[in-house]
Design a protein around this nucleic acid. Structure first.
Lengths: 231, 231
DNA sequence: GAAACCAAATCGTCATACTTTTATGCCCAG
DNA sequence: CTGGGCATAAAAGTATGACGATTTGGTTTC
């Protein structure tokens, strides 16, 4: 998942710095300056910059340098950008945006999953729903989170739509983020868990309508909680 | 939008080759081989490969080479990847996936737009809806397409959700793709155009429900046409 | 036959030199 | 004083040779 090597180290410094606004729009870096600051060669700097350029966080121009791009240009779907932003200043804006996206996508994915899921996927959804109940009771937030992530990932995958399926990392980042930064109730809501079982049952029964509704309610709930925590 | 310089040339060759399946999953390239084949230096090859790596199209490993990754790993939201795939073999699969995504996102965006659009955006939507009517009558597909793209882009932007807004290029690529590859009626459907006016009116009136419904009908129609053309 | 070791292949990094583009400021003409 | 073109230099872009690090796969040895 992570990018390796020395360019990775550069990224891990520059990415968060830009995403958090510490390096504001229009800030200019010079390649040579970065070489010195991080004690690496030109090759490494250039490759790291290329990657940031791919994410549209910066643009490199001759005789000018490497300039931080306006937020509006950033590739906000890149999982790395999402993580960096969740760790930084506009965490709440990011979570709200992602919430709306989930609200649009996940119910649709659940409906498709009810139609197209494999038997194995249906089984695993049911099993995970049970696990969620158990770990919630045990207040074992760590494994609860992991099961929650898996649950949503399976629904997205079972939709048999590659675009939806690829949002699994994005959704995973949201769930991780709101747990990590304590933006949800300390005990998972029993009601939310019942809804996960409802989704699992509906998918097993092939009931697209019910799966979609239940999933919508889940995401709406998450969004409501978020708004509560953030005022 | 496009990546510049010599690495860009490499990308323009390798990207489509991979996206089209000409270089299948597991295929191995060596950096030195690419240097010779394209007559460029290591620097250039490495940067191009880094970019492809960022899109998760390839992975580079010591002592083994640059291997093409399974399709499931590709960053299917990257606009460049989308264009390459639309130009290649699995164009129809790609269009179907994107269609489902639009069906989830655009109605939601329209609803939000009805609530949050600025006065200017409302005006421009109305104006574009009129333009669509005119250019459809004139059978001027080129400008019709451009106005259609602008229309959907404005709705997405007016939703005031950055994730939705960033899907404008994706939607644009879809609209361009299906025109370019003649996957829509030669004359735009009068019904579809009336629906665009409906969206514009609903957004102007602040009627979220109606905007959402009209937009849903538009995208459903596009998806239906697609399925008709592709069997 | 298994474990340890060695060798070759390939990417990864560095240092340096050269090329290309372009912002900026100077100078000259109007 | 103003505007346009031209020279200059600054910065990224490209090329190249050398070396380092890692992984694969075979070979040797016990």
């Amino acid at each position: 998942m992570e990018i390796q090597g020395l360019p990775g180290r550069l990224l891990a410094e520059l990415g968060p710095a830009i995403a958090s606004g510490e390096l504001p729009e229009g800030a200019v870096l010079r390649a040579e300056e970065l070489e010195e600051r991080f004690g690496v060669s030109r090759t490494v700097v250039r490759e790291a910059v290329r990657i940031l350029e791919g994410m549209r966080l910066v643009a490199s121009r001759r005789r000018v340098g490497i300039t931080v791009q306006p937020k509006a240009d950033w590739d906000v779907f890149d999982p790395m950008v999402i993580r960096w932003r969740l760790a930084g200043a506009d965490r709440s804006a990011q979570l709200r945006s992602l919430g709306s996206l989930r609200l649009a996508v996940e119910p649709a994915a659940a409906a498709l999953a009810a139609r197209h899921a494999t038997d194995d996927e249906r089984r695993r959804l049911s099993a995970l729903a049970v696990e969620l109940t158990m770990t919630a009771r045990a207040a074992d937030l760590e494994t609860f989170l992991q099961h929650d992530i898996d649950f949503h990932a399976i629904v997205l995958r079972a939709s048999r739509n590659e675009m939806f399926a690829h949002l699994k990392d994005t959704v995973g980042a949201v769930l991780t983020g709101r747990t990590e930064y304590h933006l949800m109730p300390h005990q998972p809501e029993p009601y939310a868990i019942r809804l996960h079982r409802e989704v699992a049952e509906a998918v097993c029964a092939g009931d697209a309508e019910r799966a979609e509704q239940a999933m919508r309610t889940i995401v709406e709930g998450a969004l409501a909680e978020l708004n509560e925590q953030l005022g």
